[in-house]
């Protein structure tokens, strides 16, 4: 996984609550068997005016001029400014894959849905929670043109706003470490294999029916 230490980039405002993962990447694109290539179909229903299908040339499709990501100044955005409960719905990891493939490295919102939030960390994307008032302030700043870029510093847990403001955010220390170092958390868990085996041995005595292995 790609590490995340500090990132500066263009911020795009997506002013809409409860953005669900069906909206982030519609189901017809989940038929892929790789983790890459979802970028052109990120927010497909919002970005284009027609129904997208996998394998088609997306450069020739009719663009929705009203959708924020289609505005010239946001095309190279890498930071997404979002509203509450971002990423609700399906557990599809294709949602963070699509965001990453488009180029997003950080998402700022007042709250996230649990599974999506968790999935981001597995892919080197930093989903960070800021109080609603600060998110409002950022929306106003971005929409007025006062704020074009932000810097997110994970180590010191701050978002640096061009106006000079530094917004602190909280993050779980384990997730922070994994992201800072780009750690493979499966490898980390496997370092505990003796503990896992010990747990299994104990459980075999307490709940032996769980180890009858009828699916073998």
């Amino acid at each position: 996984m790609q590490a995340f230490t500090q990132h500066s980039g263009i911020v795009v405002p997506l002013d809409r609550a409860n953005v669900d993962t069906d909206l982030i990447i519609p189901k017809q694109f989940l038929k892929a068997v790789k983790k890459t290539g979802f970028g052109p179909n990120l927010f497909d229903q919002l970005r284009y005016l027609d129904e997208g299908q996998p394998g088609t040339d997306h450069s020739t499709r009719p663009i929705n001029p009203d959708f924020v990501l289609n505005q010239e100044k946001y095309k190279a955005a890498t930071i997404l400014l979002a509203r509450e409960n971002f990423g609700c719905g399906s557990s599809r990891e294709h949602a963070p894959w699509a965001l990453l493939d488009f180029g997003f490295r950080a998402i700022l919102a007042p709250s996230f849905a649990d599974i999506f939030y968790n999935n981001c960390f597995k892919n080197g994307i930093l989903p960070l929670v800021l109080p609603a008032e600060e998110i409002d302030m950022l929306f106003q700043g971005v929409e007025s043109g006062e704020i074009a870029e932000l810097t997110v510093d994970l180590d010191s847990q701050v978002v640096v706003v061009p106006t000079g403001k530094r917004l602190h955010f909280d993050i779980d220390p384990f997730r922070k470490t994994c992201l800072l170092k780009g750690l493979d958390d499966i490898g980390l868990t496997l370092e505990k294999k003796d503990l896992i085996k010990k747990y299994e041995e104990t459980q075999k005595l307490v709940c032996p029916w769980l180890f009858e292995d009828q699916l073998a």
Partner: peptide, 14 residues
């Protein structure tokens, strides 16, 4: 769970 965790569970049962 997401797909990364599917792999995690396959690999570690945890």
């Amino acid at each position: 769970i997401g797909t990364s965790e599917v792999e995690h569970v396959l690999s570690t049962q945890c």
